[in-house]
Design a binder for these strands. Structure first.
Length: 519
DNA sequence: ATAGGGTTAG
């Protein structure tokens, strides 16, 4: 099993007690308690901190809004109430409100409208997206799609368009672009095409950007025939495929292994006055690499170097060549490519170096990996953290746990901070092997080195579950305190498991203590 | 708009 795919249920089977932890009064705690300062919390006894931690997690998991939403929920509430009261033309109501739009406000309104007023929420989202003082980030698009389950339930998009139509709402191009971006985020190719077909009803038609989005969606889906017919359609409506269109198509053709067609299109674009840039070249080159035509890829790389300018290979181009050479066991040549890129003033990144390190480790040439690390650290292009972290990950992947452990230990002892992936892997490994005290000590050490700023809640939870199961309650309480101070929330399944473990394993005395101190 | 192991927070 891969280390990074460890999930708690593979090891910690929840037992089947006949009660739910939510029903336990000993775990009951208010949200008000959660807001107490860490200092107050530290003063509390260790066992009560576990119970408090659990209870706040239980309370929170039933809320769609996180704590931070509670403080300023009023602005969303105002919008919601306004919209509810006025009914009818949502956009007109919104325009009259002179709202101070920001990401927080948008997010709150979305949450407020879901699920009983989804259509209103979406219309607000579309309206907000064209508001002059505000722009949706990609993050916001992904949040909106996730919350409203657009991918699972795409008909809501058409419901909104229908409502616009019925109400005689004027819909402009910008509003459609918000809708297309939602389709893009939700990976809805057919629906995006459906929206494109609806545009004429509102007196609009797709432009290059819109066509490119739809074509890309079909390419990503592997439906190259539809993508091609849309490209043809573009020329028929006096739109012309541009650099992005060609890039998307070439990438799509490469993805489905139609390399000759990709080459044909590459030639065609040049002949038609659209000069490929480094991204287009790189897409084609990557296709050659992936389908095993390394020689053709190298020839293309040479061509790019000769051509220069917009076609000059960049670190992404070189990295993909190096990566595929390493995959094929051709690390000697890969190193030559590294020389070549550096000679052209193109510095490797951690991705480049990581590919090479993995290649060396797979060929059992760790000493070459060390040599490479010295070289790139010396030149200042990649940090020790990134290099040695890659080395540890690679050693773990090829099942050399002792060597990985050794490098990891050396890192810690010499003050080189392992990155978060390595920390996660090593912590989970100890947990999986049931070495919970070791895991806790490691956690403590990493925490002191300030390496744990971006460890996910999953890792914390596995650690806490294991400590509770083995009844290392002092450590568990300390961990729970750290989690609380960092605002890391336990996810529902872990809450259940930990509560059950404590209940089941707990002798009367422990239960009593928890009950007594939990108030 | 390009690779990658998963870079903030929004």
């Amino acid at each position: 099993m891969k280390l990074n795919s460890i999930r708690p249920d593979t090891r910690f089977k929840p037992n089947s007690l006949p009660f739910r932890p939510e029903s336990l009064c000993l775990l009951h705690f208010s949200v008000k308690g959660f807001n107490q300062s860490p200092k107050t919390f530290l003063e509390m006894t260790t066992l009560s901190s576990i119970s408090r931690f659990l209870s706040s997690s239980i309370r929170l998991k039933n809320h769609k809004l996180s704590i931070s939403h509670f403080s300023t929920v009023s602005s969303a509430e105002t919008v919601y109430n306004h919209l509810q009261r006025n009914g009818g033309n949502i956009e007109k109501t919104l325009a009259s409100m002179r709202l101070n739009l920001d990401a927080k406000c948008v997010s709150q309104v979305l949450h407020r409208c879901y699920p009983t007023q989804s259509q209103m929420g979406l219309r607000f989202f579309i309206w907000a997206g064209v508001h002059s003082s505000y722009r949706h980030s990609y993050f916001m698009f992904s949040k909106a799609c996730e919350l409203y389950r657009i991918r699972q339930n795409p008909s809501v998009i058409f419901d909104v368009l229908e409502a616009y139509s019925v109400e005689g709402c004027s819909v402009n191009m910008k509003m459609f672009k918000v809708v297309f971006n939602m389709c893009k985020e939700a990976k809805l190719a057919d629906e995006a095409l459906g929206v494109l077909r609806k545009m004429p009803e509102f007196g609009l038609r797709g432009d290059n950007v819109v066509y490119n989005v739809v074509i890309r969606l079909f390419c990503d889906k592997g439906d190259l025939d539809m993508a091609e017919s849309l490209v043809k359609e573009m020329s028929m409506v006096e739109l012309y495929p541009d650099l992005i269109t060609y890039m998307v198509m070439i990438k799509g053709l490469c993805n489905v292994g139609r390399l000759d067609d990709a080459c044909g299109l590459f030639k065609f674009m040049k002949e038609n006055g659209c000069l490929p840039n480094v991204v287009v070249f790189s897409a084609l080159l990557d296709g050659f690499c992936r389908f095993g035509d390394m020689e053709r890829a190298l020839k293309l790389l040479e061509e790019m170097e000769k051509e220069g300018g917009d076609c000059s290979p960049n670190v992404v181009t070189y990295t993909s060549v190096i990566q595929y050479l390493c995959d094929k066991g051709r690390t000697v040549e890969a190193l030559l490519v590294l020389d070549r890129m550096e000679a052209r003033g193109c510095l490797p990144t951690r991705v480049t170096v990581s590919s090479l390190i993995t290649g060396f480790v797979k060929e059992d040439q760790v000493e070459l990996a060390y040599k490479l690390v010295d070289r790139v650290v010396e030149s200042g292009s990649v940090t020790k953290t990134d290099c040695y972290s890659s080395l540890v990950v690679s050693l773990e992947r090829v099942r050399k746990p002792e060597e990985a452990e050794k490098v990891f230990r050396t890192m810690l002892d010499s003050g080189v901070k392992p990155n978060s992936l390595v920390c996660t892997i090593m912590l989970k490994k100890s947990c999986l092997e049931g070495r919970m005290v070791d895991a806790y000590c490691l956690f403590d050490e990493l925490e002191k080195m300030e390496c744990l700023s971006s460890i996910d809640s999953d890792t914390y939870s596995i650690l806490l579950v294991g400590l509770c199961q083995q009844r290392h309650l002092v450590q568990a309480a300390k961990l729970a305190r750290v989690m609380l101070s960092k605002g890391i929330k336990l996810k529902a399944p872990y809450v259940d498991i930990i509560a059950e473990v404590l209940m089941k394993s707990g002798d009367e005395e422990l239960l009593e203590q928890l009950t007594r101190n939990g108030r």
